[in-house]
Design a protein around this nucleic acid. Sequence first.
DNA 1: GCACAAAAGTGACGTTTCGTCAATTTTCAA
DNA 2: TTGAAAATTGACGAAACGTCACTTTTGTGC
Lengths: 206, 206
Amino acid sequence: MSDAATLEPVGKREKTKAANRQAILDAARAVFAQLGYEAATVRDIIRGTDLASGTFYNYFKSKEEVYEALADDGARRFRPILRLSRENARSFEDYLHSAFVAYFQFILADNSAEGRPIDERRPHVLRMDTPEMVAVYQEVRQSLEEAIARGDAPHVDADYLACACIGMAQEVGGEMLRRNPRDVDAAARFVTGLLLNGLPGAAKKS
Amino acid sequence: MSDAATLEPVGKREKTKAANRQAILDAARAVFAQLGYEAATVRDIIRGTDLASGTFYNYFKSKEEVYEALADDGARRFRPILRLSRENARSFEDYLHSAFVAYFQFILADNSAEGRPIDERRPHVLRMDTPEMVAVYQEVRQSLEEAIARGDAPHVDADYLACACIGMAQEVGGEMLRRNPRDVDAAARFVTGLLLNGLPGAAKKS
DNA sequence: GCACAAAAGTGACGTTTCGTCAATTTTCAA
DNA sequence: TTGAAAATTGACGAAACGTCACTTTTGTGC
């Protein structure tokens, strides 16, 4: 019981460093939710921790960089979920559907926290340019490319297709959050149907 | 020749007021393009005009409000173009295609100005919540609803569909701008095909 | 344990930007 | 022409910024 484990933060240095960074991120999440992104200041964030103002700049250059780190965090948590969808899928349709379900559930969970309306919290949009965000994009594109190569999907422009999927996920996901009740599965079925068969595939069954 | 015309700015008051507002917007456009949105300050903007700093606040509450006004402007210019697409369309497919072409050409024109990379200019995303932006959304949704009612399109959830169209237009449009050459028509064909027939409809003709 | 060097934390400080406001100039209409 | 309303001006105090000399904490070699 003494040798294994201790895989990451060993020394006290690294442990507090990781803890401080996380404390700042947590505080930032709370502050953004409460004041909105634009109104929040670096001081507001640091006040939510027991650190001094100067310490903030040991970890991040600015409020923007904190936001990117949060986005990155989200993407990093989402990626393995997405991968699972791919591995467990029995068909291409199944993959698409479960991937969208995963994404919609993800944003649903991320937005169940209290605070002001979702839209005011963020600098308006999950930017597509942080490293982890790009990784998610690549993951999606690669899945699509493989499906095409395997013959599960027609020969389409994989980059455009990935963009289309992400764009739809974002906008339809946002609309889903605005609705009541929030029906993740219905939204996922809509998008999946639209992708596979176009408008006829998205038609309501009535 | 003396009665008609003079529909909008008559008195000198209103004329300079409109001119000042426009001067601020123009300066803001330039400053955002040059410094990026985040780095730009209210002072940077006002320095681009011959007005004093205090005057800025007679017209806008903040940098954010200026950005919204710019987005609003864009939407206001885009709306009639969109309407034309609808009126001149001979079929639903034709409508979709020309609407996407219109949008892609629009963002292409908006981004041919010099400056730093597109992504750094804006607070990341054409927000969907300014009044004119909402109007564009409504315009799209209404077109789709009419097409459905007319029987040109199947019975689908018009709100989700409008969101999907807008999301795809944004992301695919962004990707189109990143490419070289920038082929507006190809992008529009991709999206239209995807909407009408799903993946098979988006397939490359090869 | 002790001592010393490297790393990290602290908060006061000068700087920059903010938003306001009393004073001034411009416009309009009587 | 004149006076009141509207708009502009720039200086000012408040607020946030980012830095840096100094202190505290941690790791290492003796």
